[in-house]
Design a protein around this nucleic acid. Sequence first.
DNA 1: TGCCAGGCCGGGT
DNA 2: ACCCGGCATGGC
Length: 223
Amino acid sequence: MKITLTQLYERLFDEFGPQHWWPGRSPLEVMIGAVLVQNTAWSNVRHAIENLRDADLIDVHALYAVSTAELEELIRPAGYFRVKTRRLRALLAYLVEQYDGSLERMFTTALDTLREELLAVHGIGPETADSILLYAGELPAFVVDTYTHRVLARHGWIGFGADYHAIQDYFVQGLPEEVPLYNEFHALFVRLGKDFCRKSRPKCDVCPLGDWLPSGHPLEPDF
DNA sequence: TGCCAGGCCGGGT
DNA sequence: ACCCGGCATGGC
């Protein structure tokens, strides 16, 4: 028997409790973290963020004034440091040119418009855009990540080939449009994924969801 | 020691 | 419209 998404949320919340996301101290720090965490463990990103904090560079204009070589060195521990330096600078350029560096002003833009703008920035894809909207802007954008996809696919709720928009729609259509719910639900999926649904290490036999989601579902290797 | 991590881009079919 | 290689450090 199937359960609703709301019931799934309650089950995860009972299991893991509040995750206190996003682990960032300001909207700008959240945005920076959203870029740095792309395909990267948060433990790595933390070192990079601490470097920026220690240098008092969690500031749009200050960070944009830093040279490429210097920024690369500061965020090196986050990995992909050349790629991410370029992406961060593209994001900063957008903030400066479009909003004079004011995040308050940026987040007054209508959600759909702002999402399109963010997607047009080099290095900002759907997950990063939605993470920024939800966790930096407290706007109702449901975030889909690899864990969300993998968990749902492994349990047979969606196909392995489902794309970002389809997965996002699956949640948006089945849940009330509430920012705190979107916030906690995604954080809980990441927690569940980290603990039980890592790539090439399926442990769904001990997954907390194993009791009432279809069991024995065929897994796809490397996903 | 190797495998993996809270993606995205660009070039090739 | 997909498919794939590249990108890089740190933790288990």
